[in-house]
Design a protein around this nucleic acid. Sequence first.
DNA 1: GTACGATACCTAATGCAGCTAGGTATCGCA
DNA 2: TGCGATACCTAGCTGCATTAGGTATCGTAC
Lengths: 107, 107
Amino acid sequence: MISRELIAASTEPLVLSLLQRGENYGYAIAEKIRVFSKGEIEWTEGMLYPVLHRLERRGLLKSRWEAVNGERKRRYYSLTAKGRESLGKRRQEWLAVHETLTEAWGA
Amino acid sequence: MISRELIAASTEPLVLSLLQRGENYGYAIAEKIRVFSKGEIEWTEGMLYPVLHRLERRGLLKSRWEAVNGERKRRYYSLTAKGRESLGKRRQEWLAVHETLTEAWGA
DNA sequence: GTACGATACCTAATGCAGCTAGGTATCGCA
DNA sequence: TGCGATACCTAGCTGCATTAGGTATCGTAC
């Protein structure tokens, strides 16, 4: 089980990273995270959808609805320029903290 | 500037890591973090003290007051067995998420 | 001798994010 | 017809950082 705070810190970078590889929809994003993390990270839907809405409201993502005949409509998200920029910043931040922690764990 | 969520995720592991090296008091802990992070992580006192109180309430830390003559009284914190155990778990969690992120950033 | 900055501790109010626990809807299979 | 998987959504709760204060001691500069 990953702590609530660590989930909070990694959610946005993970969503942005996945979408950098191409557009995708909520349910599939959650699935991919499960695979990437080898089951360590379990996102509930009640947490994922608000995150996607928030990121879109902030202009980091944009979305479009797609209805394949006979299937449940899906909302596909993709990165905006602002989203790509944000991803870079988040990555830098993470690495800075990671180095600090590594040093603190130390010898 | 490190994001609020990343601060939240790293605070407890950092405090626990520093105290594993020996007991220390709040003000000095904040200073050490500044050094370890090369100035990237800036903890306000309004955030540090509640964290220490919370960790003590949860039994991860214990504290004692020390008054050197003529100096402001200091509250020294140290790890409990539970605190050491928690540090190990937090470290594992962090590394799992770090690996996931690294993979997501990918090639 | 007093004003100020550094040291050292503390707390209340606010805002934001995940978590819990619900709900709707479509499809395929038993 | 009922159930599990897929796919989306939201309201209320809780926990944590942030903001913005406060108290107290000491040394130094004016």
